[in-house]
Amino acid sequence: MESVKKPRVRIVGEEKVRLKKSFVKPWLGIKYLFKKPVTIKIPFERIEPAPKYRGFHTLDWKKCIGCNFCGQICPARAIEMTWIEVDGKIEKRPHPKVDYGRCTFCQFCVDVCPTGALGHVENCYLTTSGLEEDLELYDWVPIDPKKVQELNEKFGDYRFPVERITFNKETKETTYYLRDGTEFRFKIIGYGLKPPAAARPKPAAKPAQKSAESSKKDESSKTEEKKG
C-alpha cells in the first residue's frame, strides 16, 4: 500500500519553506496601529447571533405528544418529562423540562422531535446576577415559540425570555414572570413517563398498565372531574 501511494505525495523541500531571519520586518506590524481595531466594545457594540444559532428551547405544548424521544437522545440527560396542569386541566401527555445546568445546547432533541413541537431560538445569554432565586430560572418547561418571538421583537437583546420563576411548594404552582410583565401559571404535578398519582385512576382499576397510551385520555378527564 505504501509503495503505491507514495509517489502521490508531493514533497516540499527546504528552499521553499525556510524563511529569512530579520530584525527590521517585525517593526512593519506597527502599520496596524493606524487601522480600525477589530475589538468589539461590548456594551456599546454588539454582534448578533447567527440565524439558527443553537440557543434556548421553545415548546409548542399543543403539538407535543410526550413521546420522550427528546429525553432519550439527550446526551447530558437534561430533559425530564413533566406532568403539567394548566388552569385546572391536566395536559394529556408529559412535556419535557430542560435543565440548562446540564444542557449542552446540541439541539439533538430538536432534531429528533417527530412532531416539531420542540424548537429553538437564537437567544443565548445565560448570565444572571447570581442571586439564589436566579438558579431556579434555568430549569424550565420551554414556552410557546410565538410568545418568545414576540418578546424578541420587543426587546431584541437575546436574553432569556423569563425574568423570574417561582415555585410554591405547597400548591405546586409554578409561575413564570415573562419579561414583558405577563405572568404564566401552571402546576407541576409529577415527573416521569408514567402518569402521576393525581392523574391515575383508583388503584383497584388497573394496577400494572404498560400500554398507558389509550387509557391516559380518560384518566386525565377523570382527574379533571375530581379536581373540579
Partner: peptide, 14 residues
Amino acid sequence: KDFDEILFDNYITI
C-alpha cells in the same frame, strides 16, 4: 504575509 513579518521571519522566533 503579516504573520511572516512579525512572527516567522522574526529574529526572536528563530
